[in-house]
Design a binder for these strands. Structure first.
Length: 471
RNA sequence: GGCGGGGUAGCCAAGUGGUAAGGUCGCGGUCUGCAAAACCGCUAUUCGCGGGUUCGAUUCCCGCCCCCGCCUCCA
């Protein structure tokens, strides 16, 4: 089955055909964080979705070039730097650093480029694009000295969001300077300097000021990818106005189709409510780590629901993630033992299939893909219970897992080393068991458990595994 | 008001015009000295509600209800 994605632009599932199929190269642009505070887990849901997308494309043999922008100048960063009374670059640096820390914890692959809006290279590019838009009559400088995009001159404006612009209603959420603009929907390309900006600003043909938010993405995607990109991702809330504006700006300059496939991720909810910085009901990654959850547990919890469906974050869901991963762990341990045992009963016919990746081909149907994974786990466990899984089959399953895990990236990283204390207790317990001193054996099991290790007695003696979440 | 996305077991969730994957939780069983893990069995006669089409609908059509979101700088 060929790759299919739901394209927000057409609102249909479409077969994926990259711009340059022969090269197997794909360009992806993803909207990154605005670094005015620590990103919350809702942000990371979107980034994990993009990570899953990239990894699956790579599994399918594509070479992905992905760009993620960092918005490091806007109203909120300026407010932040003013309140903190430190320079903008210093203010945003701390959140950039936190962001990279967090994506590493969540095992999100780094983009190839993380362009920053304040980089002079991109400021220049933005100015260049704005000038082109003005020369084409698509933009104008208003009385307030800011430059705006003239949406009436761009007939496709509203096509992505499927908005009828005459129906636009102000929510009052954002204050805008309606008197300076020709149309209420005209959006800023260049914002004229005002007092609140302090020493933040760049010179331009239209005077000192700073870029509007949308133009940075148009400039960076054009500069780093090309006039036309294969896939552009973001949260659904970015569809309007942000992505709509990007289309208008980029196509207004190049005259070419900007993006082939628009993929948008639904929101993460907390207790059924949208999670957002402005509402203050958000968790950051450190908040969850403090509760004892690991990066991979959080990764699983954020990944397991289809990207176009809302994901309701709950602690019950975190617990579920933990248990599901523990199940995978156990399975891998057994498989590796089976692969090493070199028994050859040769009767097992359970073979890994390709259903996992085929599910992902279908608009990243992760639930179906995980369904196949867990079915496979049950089947192979059943076979191993009967001691019927031969070594070569076990190896085949392990190879399959490696492939699957390239996409999921859910395996425990390092073996947690037994402390000398636990090792000694285990040894004592072994002796106690040899003497069938069950009382002492159970006491020791409790003590080992208190130290974070679970004890299991198997045919091959006792086995210790670190309790989930502790490692 | 306009435009989206959802509503499937306690919770999360896949799915199809032919009678409901998977995860998690709970209960019972096998195994065990007891556990744990694993496996087996049970847990939705039913897929928000009401109509319609059909031999048959959770799946298609119509109407309605509920939740979440977007409607000018939120992923």
């Amino acid at each position: 089955m060929a790759l299919h994605f739901f394209n927000s632009y057409s609102r249909e599932i479409e077969e994926f055909q990259p711009r340059d199929p022969a090269q197997r190269k794909i360009s992806i642009y993803t909207c990154g964080p605005t670094v005015y505070s620590r990103a919350h887990i809702g942000n990371f849901r979107a980034y994990i979705f993009e990570d899953l997308l990239q990894r699956h494309l790579e599994l399918r043999g594509y070479k992905v070039h992905r760009v993620m922008n960092i918005t490091d100048v806007d109203d909120k960063t300026i407010r932040g730097t003013r309140e903190a009374k430190i320079p903008l670059s210093k203010f945003t640096a701390q959140f950039k650093e936190a962001f990279f820390e967090d994506i590493e914890t969540l095992r999100i692959k780094r983009a190839d480029d993380f362009p920053a809006a304040t980089d002079q290279r991109y400021i220049d590019k933005m100015i260049e694009m704005i000038a082109a838009l003005i020369s084409r009559g698509l933009a104008y400088q208003a009385d307030d000295k800011s430059v705006y995009f003239r949406i009436n001159k761009f007939p496709d404006y509203g096509k992505l969001a499927h908005f009828d612009l005459t129906q636009l209603q102000s929510t009052g959420r954002v204050k805008h300077d309606e008197y300076d603009k020709e149309h209420i929907g005209d959006f800023a390309l260049w914002k004229a300097w005002d007092e609140e900006d302090g020493d933040i600003g760049w010179e331009s043909p239209w005077g000192r000021g700073r870029p509007g938010w949308h133009i940075e993405c148009s400039a960076m995607s054009t500069a780093l990818l090309s006039d036309q990109i294969d896939i552009h991702c973001g949260g659904v809330d970015n569809i309007f106005p942000h992505h709509e504006a990007e289309i208008a700006q980029s196509e207004g300059v190049t005259g070419k189709k900007f993006v082939r496939y628009w993929l948008h991720c639904a929101h993460l909810l907390v207790d059924g409510q949208k999670m957002s910085k402005s509402l203050g009901n958000f968790y950051t990654l450190p908040n969850l780590l403090e509760k004892g959850y690991t990066g991979r547990e959080i990764r699983y919890a954020l990944m397991r629901v289809h990207y176009r469906a809302p994901l309701n974050f709950t602690w019950e869901g975190m617990e579920e993630a933990r248990q599901a991963l523990a199940r995978i762990n156990e399975w891998l341990v057994r498989l590796r033992e089976a692969a090493a045992k070199n028994i050859d009963k040769g009767k097992n016919k359970t073979q890994p299939g390709s259903l996992f990746e085929e599910a992902l081909d279908d608009d990243l149907n992760i639930s179906a893909a995980l369904g196949f994974l867990f079915e496979s786990i049950r089947e192979t466990n059943r076979t191993m219970d009967r001691n019927k899984l031969d070594a070569s089959s076990a190896r085949a399953w392990l190879n399959w897992w490696e492939r699957v895990n390239n996409v999921l990236d859910l395996e425990t990283e390092n073996e947690v080393v037994l402390s000398a204390e636990v090792a000694q207790l285990a040894k004592d317990r072994e002796n106690a068991r040899r003497e069938k001193n069950w009382k002492q054996s159970d006491e020791l099991r409790d003590r080992i458990s208190a130290l974070g290790w679970e004890v299991r007695d198997t045919n091959d003696g006792q086995k210790l595994t670190p309790r989930m979440g502790s490692g």
